[in-house]
Design a protein around this nucleic acid. Structure first.
Lengths: 183, 183
DNA sequence: GTCTATAAAGCGATAGAC
DNA sequence: GTCTATCGCTTTATAGAC
């Protein structure tokens, strides 16, 4: 069934890379074409809504990945395993600190207004899923929520600092510290 | 001596607002003109190097502000006062969570390559100044460095999450938690 | 389904009048 | 020092050939 060189689904991770590299505004169709190998014809065939639809598809795929590998395990697995799995999945997804969080990046400037619901939902569900697991581990409600917030923001902050100081190891150190704190 | 409606120095905070709102790529000269009230003639008179020089001026001003209000107090004041002052200054500067960190935002995409030295220096000096104060408070070297990293990344992460979830109070809660942790 | 050509608008930057 | 007009280029998006 592979009628095209690249299926729509195959293009989405490459689109994500383009947006991560250049930001939403900076990711021009020329750069997207270069990164994906898809001409404008193919791109508009797959994503009639243009750049905005491409970014929506990327955010939806990210959301799905975290739903599968992070949020659902946190909600359904044994809490300790869910939390350990979250840290491992997070380390993998962000390439041990070599990859930024696109959702966080989109949140910082006016790009946020285009995707506000997806952005808010991603972080809210992450924090809530983690807080739930912490409650099931015996933390009282307010402390569980506070700790969950603290963990998710530490991951985001570590990604910012790792990139800013060109030191991916800072992200890995942070994950290790979080593992201790949650252990 | 106020020969122009707006001096170069007065324009810089407005330029910072424009870059914070739209990002470096998204901040077009049209939007910058709108935000500052300065026409292209005045902008290129003040900043012959164009947008890049405008952003450099903004980063330099941010750097100077933190040098004065955060890094120097951390290095020279009594450690406890320096740390308390840092948290208060940080809360003020980031408007209690209503303002993002432009340096962190620039770090995330390819904008970083234009300003890599300024970005790296800002965060490195912040972490080092804080680690120094913590050492003088009695923390052993490695723990002081780890804690300083943890605090600065928590501030960055809180700014990302506060904006992503449209909840500035999250930033304020984080500062309060850091105050306890450092108290 | 993918290509090239093209449209219309916007971009950063410059020139020259005032 | 600030304005308007304009340059040359890039942008997103579309149209039409294949």
């Amino acid at each position: 069934m592979a009628r095209t060189l690249l299926e729509r689904a195959d293009a989405i991770p490459l689109l994500g890379e383009a947006f991560r590299t250049w930001g939403f505004e900076g990711a021009s169709l020329a750069r997207i074409t270069e990164k994906t190998g898809l001409g404008k014809g193919s791109l508009y065939n797959f994503f009639p809504g243009g750049k905005e639809e491409m970014a929506e598809a990327v955010l939806a795929e990210i959301d799905g990945w975290f739903e599968t590998h992070v949020f659902t395990p946190l909600a359904t697995a044994e809490p300790k395993a869910g939390i350990t799995g979250m840290l491992a999945a997070t380390g993998d997804y962000f390439r041990s600190g070599n990859r930024i969080c696109l959702v966080g990046a989109f949140a910082l400037d006016e790009t946020r207004s285009r995707f506000a619901i997806a952005i808010n939902s991603y972080f809210s569900r992450w924090i809530n899923a983690l807080a739930g697991a912490l409650e099931r581990r015996g933390h009282a409600r307010p402390e569980a929520t506070a700790l969950a917030e603290d963990v998710v923001l530490a991951i985001q902050g570590a990604l910012v600092l790792a990139r800013a100081t060109d030191d991916p190891a800072l992200f890995q150190r942070t994950l290790a510290r979080l593992a201790q704190r949650l252990g």
